[in-house]
Amino acid sequence: MATTQIDAPAPEAEFGDFVALLKPRVMSLVVFTAFVGLWVAPVPVHPVIAFCSVLFIALGGGASGALNMWYDADIDSVMRRTASRPIPAGLVKPGDALGLGLALSGVSVMMLGLAANWVAAGLLAFTIFFYAVVYTIWLKRSTPQNIVIGGAAGALPPMIGWACATGGISIESLLMFALIFFWTPPHFWALALFMKDDYRDAGVPMLTVTHGRTSTRRHIFAYTLVLAPFAIWLGFTSVGGPLYLAVALVLNALFIHGGWRILRRSDTTAAADGYAVEKRYFRLSLYYTFLHFLALLIQHGLGGW
């Protein structure tokens, strides 16, 4: 008996697939750092306005995530870590992701301008532009310094939060920017060390692919040394205090020590123990930013110097 095979319809997206386009895990970091930037600023903000501001900053971050997934769908489908994202999985059409990204960019910037002020909205617009156009479209595929430059977009949220409260930029917000900016490269390069094949297959010029893994280890250590003074300097500003300074000293000592251990290892040793040191360093790097910003928040509650 002949059987008739009717083509299964293309899988249809559910609401969660569109939420996944906004990169919720990246968003959680954006929410946290933007909130800390806003809350530790010397100008008190009404809780409703603070909530709205952080929400629209997160939405702007989500918009740039959707634009990134739209443009990078070809890379994402090759890499194991990203192959299940909504576009490579065939759940969301690329055009829909582009539309969502553009619409949310407009809404988030306009609403942040109305809720807080236009300096903050301008910074948010710059962040989205920087991440979607400068990083994703232009530099990610053309230079091994892509991570360094892309880090600027991730480092802006606390500055936007600060601008929501104060309407401007100051040394404290610039140092919060520096804290994330110089933290990003060692964080991602540690990831690249133990996720080695993925980036090569996708043709992304990761430092591990272009300059080799020994050079990447040197870069990681160098960045921990550059990062430490900025993290500690923040402790001597108006948002710092004894608690923050103590936390920063401990975390940076650990981070430099971790970077040193990565530098001293050869790739053969690392492969032998399954990149244990690199993986531990990567986990430490996650705690590093979280604890710095948490310390700022608690320090603000306790009062500064």
């Binding site: 249809e12 997206a13 559910e14 609401f15 969660g16 569109f18 939420v19």
Partner: peptide, 10 residues
């Protein structure tokens, strides 16, 4: 079910 989830979500 997927459509409903989108509609309710929006």
């Amino acid at each position: 079910r997927r459509r409903r989830s989108r509609n309710v979500g929006v």
